[in-house]
């Protein structure tokens, strides 16, 4: 049911009533959540940003789930990148500062995967946002009617669960 609800909200957001920036913003913040280990201090900050900024929450949850799975494939790269940065002599002062500052130490930037995944997320931030916005516009213009014709979309829409869910939603309103 959660997936169904999420899919419905995401499709709704993609279709019309949410601005492309909000969807792309939510998607980008979800990438941060998905790529880095779940219990990190910076993830708390990201969740707070998702709640207080005008970004699409469904898009954020969707991308967090998708990149949570994709993130496992990125772990090796995150580890290598994080290790290279942590071992880099010119940056030693920065990491040492993070390591010795009580609150910042909780962010665990001295962990190779945490640092690597944050850096990868930062690298992906702008391209994801720009292409995310473009994708929403493209989806609304060219893709939405094609998706609606797709068998899987029809199956989902005509499924008993979906109908039942829609009925319940009506009662709820």
């Amino acid at each position: 049911m959660f997936w169904m609800k999420l899919l419905k909200k995401l499709l709704k957001a993609l279709n019309a009533d949410v601005s492309p920036s909000e969807v792309a913003g939510g998607f980008v913040l979800g990438v941060f959540l998905g790529l880095s280990p779940t219990f990190s201090l910076h993830n708390l900050l990201i969740v707070t940003l998702i709640i207080i900024l005008k970004v699409n929450i469904s898009a954020a949850i969707f991308s967090a789930l998708v990149f949570g799975i994709v993130g496992y494939a990125f772990d090796g790269l995150s580890h290598q990148l994080g290790r290279a940065l942590l071992m880099s002599a010119p940056l030693e002062g920065v990491w040492s500062f993070f390591y010795n500052t009580p609150l910042l130490a909780l962010a665990r930037f001295h962990n190779t995967v945490v640092l690597g995944s944050v850096v990868i997320s930062l690298i992906l931030l702008m391209p994801m946002y720009i292409y995310g916005k473009k994708f929403v516009v493209y989806y609304r213009r060219d893709l939405s009617h094609k998706v609606e014709k797709m068998k899987i979309y029809k199956i989902v829409k005509s499924s008993k669960i979906y109908k039942f869910y829609m009925k319940v939603q009506k009662f709820k309103v």
Binding site: H79, S96, G116
Partner: peptide, 15 residues
């Protein structure tokens, strides 16, 4: 194991 959990790199601790 470095995969999934990574590795903690220790730095000089002032305290």
């Amino acid at each position: 194991p470095p995969r999934f959990k990574g590795e903690d790199i220790a730095f000089y601790r002032e305290k």
